[in-house]
Design a binder for these strands. Structure first.
Lengths: 201, 201
DNA sequence: GTCTATAAATAGATAGAC
DNA sequence: GTCTATCTATTTATAGAC
């Protein structure tokens, strides 16, 4: 009867009962803390407290704050893949791009990672390279479509980033309350307009 | 011959020659530091160093770090007025809104303040209320146009925020290099599309 | 594996000399 | 008005007991 402190943390599917190890608890808590306060704002103590473990354990398991942060941002690789699958197509579908991109922000797990990246990157830390990389990678990969489409894709991506920030970060009134399907519906026209941009004329 | 250290700081019009006081130097340096590193990232020491003054003077003049930060974000009131002048019109002009909004980010002075707000607000600090206020104020003031236009304006503002962030903060490759006029030209269609949005249909 | 205790660095703020 | 010196609090990181 000693697991009274486990609380309701084990919501993930497929999680082994005895395997709710402190390492995973720390990682989950770190994601939340970094997402909410950025790299500098989140402290090892606040992470340890949120995880319900001793203050020394985060450093013990991950070898330092920066390494813990890096571990936090580990898996958005799959998110990148989803985006690339859309942008690699010869003719990018505006609705599909909008739904995929904003959809990444709807899932609480990936949203936590994206928030951590945005919070820490835009917050003035060193993580801004990661953010730039995340944005330009989908871009460079789709650059084979020619420079004309490239500028349109940058524009579209920027608009989608702004939309996600307004909905999930600053939580502007009507945007943050819209059902996801309606959000996609009203955002798509602008993305369509951006993708069709051409510089001359 | 002791003002060899004054450098080229006195670019503002109407600045008294003997009045390049350390208080102003500190304020200018604080703007840059807060804009680059966010509230937590910028330290009183780094600000003092950047201003070329003693470490004790920032606290001495402004009474603390938070008060110094507040002083930094003082004048965006005029920026807000410029935006309101556009959004208050019965039929908002997409090109005019785009030019005004993105224009605020082109001026180094207001850009510094906007960067400080975004960096500190999005970075997880308490300044997120200021950012939300800045975004919603132009919104509420234009809400007399009816809820239909309101959602369109939110969308447009979000897209413009994303564009400004991509150009000035993450500095995505083609966006950050475009001349301002071209930027306005290619962004306007999406803003136009957003402003014309209606939910039912 | 987990904890206490503490080291080492850094931050904001202030007192008092000049 | 400006500076040196210092206090206090907080943070990361680690050493060593249990």
């Amino acid at each position: 009867m000693r697991w009274g402190t486990f609380m309701e943390t084990a919501r993930r599917t497929g999680r082994r009962r005895g395997g709710v190890d402190t390492r995973t608890q720390i990682l989950d808590a770190a994601r939340i803390e970094f997402a909410r306060k950025g790299f500098k704002g989140a402290t090892m103590r606040s992470i340890a407290d949120a995880a319900g473990v001793n203050v020394a354990l985060p450093a013990h398991y991950f070898g330092g704050k920066k390494k813990l942060f890096a571990a936090t941002l580990e898996l958005p690789a799959e998110a990148r893949e989803q985006l690339l699958a859309v942008t690699r197509q010869p003719e990018i579908d505006a609705g599909e791009l909008t739904r995929t991109y904003l959809g990444l922000w709807e899932d609480p797990d990936t949203r936590g990672q994206l928030l951590a990246i945005v919070r820490s990157g835009l917050g003035g830390g060193e993580a801004i390279e990661w953010l730039r990389e995340l944005l330009t990678e989908a871009l460079d990969d789709a650059a084979s479509s020619g420079p004309q489409q490239k500028i349109g894709l940058v524009l579209a991506t920027s608009h989608l980033l702004g939309t996600a920030v307004a909905r999930h970060l600053t939580q502007i009134a009507p945007l943050s309350l819209l059902p996801f399907d309606e959000l996609v519906t009203i955002v798509t026209p602008a993305i369509e307009a951006s993708l069709r941009i051409h510089l001359d004329g």
